[in-house]
C-alpha cells in the first residue's frame, strides 16, 4: 500500500527522550512510501498524568488532537508511542457513549465528528505496508544478529481496545525483525511489565522489573532487546546502569525497531540515530558481523560438500548406466 498518508502524532517523548524513535520512524516511513502530515498545533494525548486524575479531561485532550487533525483534513492518525495510541483509542471508544461525549465536548467546545482512527507505526508497517515490501527494501540484512523483541504491556492490550496481534504472545515484531534478516529468539517476557511510570513514585520497581527482562534476554544470548515504546526504552536503556548496580553483570543495547529498520534499509547514521541510545550498539553489531561471516563460511562449506556429493553421484550413475548397457550387450 504505497502512497498512503497519515496524520502524524509524535507524542511528547518524540520531541525529547525518544528523538531516535522519531527520526528513524520518519525516515523509515518515507522509505516505505508513507506520507506523514504533522497534526498542526498538537497537544498532550492525555496519557499518564491526566487520565489517572480525570478521564473526561484526558479524553478531551485526545479529542482536541483529532479535531486539530480534522481541521487539516486528516482522519487517520499514526503514532509511534503505544501509550499515546492507547489513550487516543480509549478516548474514541469512550466517546461512543453519548453522555460521556457530551461531557468531553463541553470542555473542547466543539463536537467530535465521526470516522476517526488511530494506529501504531508498528501496526501500519506490518499490516498496511506488509512484510514483503519491507523485505524488498532491505539493503543491509541483519544476518547474525540475535534479537529479542519486547512489546511492552500496551501495544496489544487490552485486547478489545487495541485489536492488534495476540495479546499474550504477539508475533508482529518477531516477523518484522526476521524480515530484516535478524535472528529472533523466543522471548517469554515480551509483554511483561517493565515498571512503566511506576518507576517515578516507586523508584525500586524499575530495577526489579526491567532487570528481570534484561536478565532473561542475556541468559538467552541476545545481542539486543528491540522495543517499540519510549517509556519501556527509557526504563531498559537509560536505567540500565542503575540495574547493573543491583546485580546485572552485562550491558545490552535497547534500540527501537525503527532504528534497526533504518540500518537495514541502508540509511545514514543520522536516521538510524544509534548514538542517541545510552548503551552502545557497536559491540552488538561487531558480534553480528562476526557471526554473519561464520554463517557465510558454513554455508559455503555445506554447498561445497553438496556439490562434491552430487558430482560423485553423477559419476556413479554414469558408471552404473555404462555397466547396465554393457550387461545388456552381453
Amino acid at each position: 500500500m504505497s502512497g498512503a498518508a497519515f496524520g502524524y502524532f509524535p507524542g511528547c517523548s518524540g520531541l525529547g527522550t525518544s528523538l531516535e524513535y522519531e527520526r528513524s520512524t520518519r525516515a523509515v516511513c518515507r522509505e516505505l512510501g508513507l506520507t506523514l502530515w504533522d497534526i498542526p498545533d498538537w497537544n498532550c494525548c492525555g496519557s499518564t498524568p491526566a487520565h489517572t486524575v480525570d478521564p473526561v479531561l484526558s479524553a478531551a485532550l485526545s479529542a482536541r488532537v483529532f479535531a486539530q487533525g480534522a481541521r487539516a483534513g486528516i482522519r487517520d492518525v499514526l503514532t509511534p508511542c503505544p501509550s499515546c495510541l492507547s489513550n487516543l483509542r480509549n478516548a474514541l471508544e469512550h466517546m461512543e457513549d453519548e453522555l460521556f461525549a457530551a461531557r468531553v465536548e463541553a470542555l473542547t467546545e466543539r463536537p467530535l465528528e465521526a470516522g476517526h482512527s488511530v494506529k501504531s507505526v508498528l501496526q501500519v508497517i506490518v499490516e498496511d505496508v506488509g512484510l514483503d515490501k519491507v523485505k524488498e527494501r532491505v539493503r543491509r540484512p541483519l544476518t547474525g544478529l540475535k534479537t529479542v523483541p519486547y512489546y511492552g504491556c500496551l501495544m496489544t492490550r487490552p485486547e478489545k481496545i487495541m485489536r492488534f496481534d495476540d495479546p499474550e504472545n504477539p508475533q508482529s515484531m518477531d516477523l518484522l525483525l526476521q524480515a530484516l534478516g535478524a535472528q529472533v529468539l523466543p522471548f517469554p517476557l515480551k509483554v511483561d511489565c517493565c515498571g512503566g511510570s511506576l518507576g517515578i513514585p516507586v523508584r525500586d520497581s524499575v530495577p526489579r522489573l526491567a532487570g528481570r527482562i534484561l536478565e532473561l534476554a542475556g541468559e538467552l544470548g541476545a545481542d539486543m532487546v528491540v522495543v517499540a515504546c519510549p517509556l519501556c526504552q527509557m526504563n531498559l536503556d537509560l536505567r540500565q546502569g542503575q540495574i547493573r548496580t543491583r546485580g546485572l553483570d552485562y550491558t545490552i543495547p535497547v534500540p527501537y525497531f525503527t532504528q534497526l529498520m533504518a540500518y537495514a534499509f541502508g540509511l545514514g547514521d543520522e536516521e538510524a540515530a544509534f548514538k542517541l541510545l545510552a548503551e552502545d550498539v557497536a559491540p552488538a553489531f561487531s558480534c553480528m558481523r562476526r557471526r554473519a561471516e561464520e554463517i557465510k563460511a558454513e554455508e559455503a562449506r555445506v554447498a561445497a560438500l553438496a556439490a562434491q556429493k552430487a558430482a560423485a553421484r553423477a559419476g556413479r550413475g554414469a558408471q552404473s548406466r555404462a555397466n547396465g548397457a554393457a550387461g545388456g550387450e552381453a
Binding site: D166, P167, E168, N169, P186, P188
Partner: peptide
Amino acid sequence: VYQEYGGGR
C-alpha cells in the same frame, strides 16, 4: 488459547 500459559509451546 491460553497464550499466557505458553499456548502449547
